[in-house]
């Protein structure tokens, strides 16, 4: 059984995806019958950015993000580990900067209205810093495991990968 926050994230992400499908389908159906739902697509679009962030975090947890390992695979294991740790720290700095700037931007323009819905656009902008914090936490977990001599940071050891000869 995976930890509770992973189960929760998984549940929320799946619910978001299903909700987006239903909202857009309903919007099209309602319009066809002459009763356009103005909030439906807006809400779907708003939920979408959160789905992207949760999905990206799940993919990072499972080390599924696509990378070019063609050259790294040719390095000796110890070297590869060092490269990955450096890249991991750089990415951590990047995510941290985005999270900090994201909070500032969200607060700066909180009056901005989302589309024509009346709710604050902060619900969209805010997804970026929240997503970056989640990604950073996941990345810290990978980095710690790597420094302890375990798995790599971004590459999945067990992933199918072309053979190098």
């Amino acid at each position: 059984m995976p930890p509770i926050h992973v189960v929760l994230e998984e549940f929320v992400a799946k619910a978001l995806l299903a909700a987006i499908v239903v909202l857009v389908f309903l919007a099209a159906a309602a319009r066809t019958f002459g009763h356009p739902l103005i909030w439906s697509v807006d809400l779907a679009q708003l939920l979408f950015v959160w789905l992207c962030m949760l999905g990206a975090n799940k993919a990072l947890r499972r080390k599924s993000h696509i990378g070019v390992d063609f050259f790294v695979l040719r390095l000796p294991t110890a070297m590869r580990r060092i490269v990955e740790i450096v890249l991991g720290l750089l990415t951590l700095g990047f995510l941290g900067a985005l999270a900090y700037l994201g909070v500032r931007l969200t607060l700066l323009n909180a009056e901005r209205i989302y589309g024509d819905s009346g709710i604050s656009y902060a619900w969209v902008t805010g997804a970026v810093p929240v997503g970056c914090v989640l990604l950073a936490l996941t990345l810290i977990g990978h980095l710690v495991r790597c420094l302890r001599g375990g798995a790599l940071v971004f590459l999945r050891e067990d992933a199918p990968r072309p053979v190098v000869e």
Partner: peptide
Amino acid sequence: AGVRMRTPGAPVWMETIRAMGATPTP
């Protein structure tokens, strides 16, 4: 009456088009 008319979704446009008799469709 019953005409689905595209308009920007801001309240002032929506209410104007509704008052003119159409169904505002952003």
